[in-house]
Nucleic acid binder design. Structure first.
Length: 184
DNA sequence: TTAGAGATGATC
DNA sequence: ATCATCTCTAAG
């Protein structure tokens, strides 16, 4: 599972907004009923069946955008949901996008907030986050992912709840929720 | 501090 | 009908 390796990587925008990834969830079509790709390829989820390193951004509950990165070889239909960032640069631009009174901790805590803070929308679906020319890029400043990680239950799903595919940077105050219970 | 409900639209 | 959510409001 490559998802936990995204922890501590950096997401940056061309206009100087940046945050460190502190929480992710994996979704994998074939064995995961909660994945958008579980029922096969459609117009909406097609990018997830494509090459890794590309964004899949979908509209959730009629209100929020949520950003994922394709993290499996072509044809698999798998991606990783970005659930929380620790803001490290461009906080004022994030506040401009989210609301001027939002405190630092709430800027990118939760997938919908994170997307709003970075200005991520459906228009960004398909973007190559490894290419240096992209508006949104993933960077590695050398900080390794945490060791001895344990998968936790995912949040806000009603199927495949036993799959422990949520990972957080332990004790980081920018994660969207506490560790929660591990599925039995 | 926590709990509940409503908003709102794409998808199948 | 079902959601990979957030915010507000009200109560404790």
């Amino acid at each position: 599972m490559v998802a936990p390796r995204l922890l501590n990587k950096i997401v940056a925008t061309a206009d100087g907004r940046a945050g460190r990834i502190v929480e992710v969830e994996a979704y994998e079509g074939a064995r995961d009923e909660a994945a958008h790709t579980f029922r096969g390829k459609t117009a909406r989820n097609a990018v997830m069946f494509g090459a890794p390193g590309h964004l899949y951004v979908y509209f959730s509950y009629g209100v929020h955008w949520c950003g994922n990165v394709v993290c499996a070889p072509e044809g698999v239909g798998s991606a990783v949901l970005l659930r929380a960032l620790e803001p490290i640069a461009g906080l004022e631009a994030m506040r401009m996008a989210r609301g001027l009174r939002i405190v630092d901790r709430d800027l990118c805590r939760g997938p919908g907030r994170l997307a709003q803070a970075l200005g991520m929308t459906g228009a960004d679906t398909g973007m190559d986050v490894v290419a240096a020319s992209s508006r949104i890029q993933f960077l590695d400043d050398g900080t390794p992912p945490p060791k001895a990680l344990r998968g936790l239950p995912r949040i806000g799903i009603s199927r495949s709840m036993a799959l422990p595919w949520r990972w957080i940077v332990p004790d980081n105050r920018f994660v969207s929720r506490g560790p929660g219970k591990v599925a039995e």
